[in-house]
């Protein structure tokens, strides 16, 4: 007879436990804005900080910097502000393919960046490496390296200042437990540093930071790439509200708007208006299973948002 008996519990390996504890303590210190704070702060100050943190949702990091919303912006759905009147005439993307030597150096940089990951990407084959010729700010992602192994993808991005902005990896052998991995939350889905995926009917993607002109994304093999800012969780040093309010969107950094256009030029997706929200639940495209519950109390495939097939 089959039974559900599971193996006995194990402790985390001691070196892992010690390392993770040290890392988490350091992250708390860093994100609270006080290096190596060891004593409790007065309750009033703590409460104020919690109120600030409450505006930052898990999974949707805030922007760094202190940009202000310029004159001429209009509030959009979801509480974001997006620039008005300049959504349809971005400059064409000017990119260049990296040379073999540049690609090899970039790849090594990415391998180094991920050397302590469980999954090694050394055996992944690079299928694309390119960069934007010019970006508005050095902090924006400028270069991307796309590598593949079977159905698993690894995308590494680099900022204009030459530092690795981040990486993302997904696929059946990397995220077997993540059933939402093959599906998209929106027609244009954000997954990483200025990177994402889109559904087949999308032929054009733009990204726009409030105050900036929209920028044309590069579309290739179901992925889009555009210069966007590396995220972080900046809290004002002296209290107060976060610099950029949380937008409660999945895969869309606060302050940014992602748009997708169909082949006839029609705008079919605008993250500021119908972006995927963290409060909602999501079902598979066939509406047979709820894949992402979030905070929905009684999710059913029929009542949850339907996810999209990628390609």
């Amino acid at each position: 007879m089959t039974d559900l008996t599971t193996p006995p519990d194990h402790d985390l390996p001691r070196p892992v436990r010690d390392r993770q504890r040290d890392e988490l303590v350091a992250i708390v210190d860093h994100e609270f804005g006080a290096p190596r704070r060891r004593t409790a702060v007065p309750l009033l100050a703590a409460a104020a900080t919690v109120a600030v943190i409450a505006g930052l949702a898990f999974g949707v990091p805030a922007l760094k910097g202190s940009r202000t919303t310029p004159t001429g912006t209009a509030p959009a759905a979801g509480g974001q502000k997006v620039a008005s009147g300049n959504t349809s005439a971005p400059q064409p993307a000017r990119t260049r393919k990296l040379s073999a030597a540049e690609t090899a150096a970039f790849r090594n940089q990415c391998i180094e960046f991920t050397k302590d990951y469980q999954n090694s990407f050394a055996s992944f084959e690079v299928i694309n490496a390119f960069e934007y010729v010019k970006t508005a700010r050095p902090g924006l992602t400028k270069s991307w390296l796309v590598a593949r192994k079977g159905m698993d993808y690894w995308i590494c991005s680099r900022s204009g200042d030459g530092s690795i902005a981040g990486d993302s990896a997904f696929g059946p052998n990397i995220s077997p437990a993540g059933k939402d991995v093959p599906y998209l939350f929106a027609p244009v889905d954000g997954r990483g540093e200025g990177t994402g995926m889109y559904i087949p009917s999308i032929t054009r993607v733009t990204v726009q930071h409030h105050g900036d002109d929209p920028v044309e994304a590069v579309l290739k093999d179901g992925f889009w790439f555009a210069p966007m800012e590396q995220d972080s969780f900046p809290l004002p040093k002296n209290g107060g509200r976060p610099i950029t309010p949380d937008n409660h969107l999945i895969g869309v950094m606060p302050g940014w708007t992602i748009r997708g256009y169909a082949g006839d030029g029609k705008l079919v997706y605008d993250s500021a208006k119908n972006g995927p929200r963290v409060e909602k639940c999501y079902s598979n495209p066939a509406r047979t299973e709820v894949l992402v519950v979030n905070s929905v109390k009684h999710p059913t495939p029929a009542t949850c948002e339907r996810m999209f097939d990628w390609k």
């Binding site: 390392r19 993302s168 993540g178 969780f233």
Partner: peptide
């Protein structure tokens, strides 16, 4: 678990922000 790769990426970024990119190997 449902958002595995995003969770790992977020943790990686938090480490980087805290200047804690450790040189450890499993």
């Amino acid at each position: 678990v449902r958002n595995e790769w995003r969770a790992k990426l977020r943790y990686r970024r938090a480490l980087a922000a805290a200047h804690l990119l450790a040189d450890h190997q499993r």
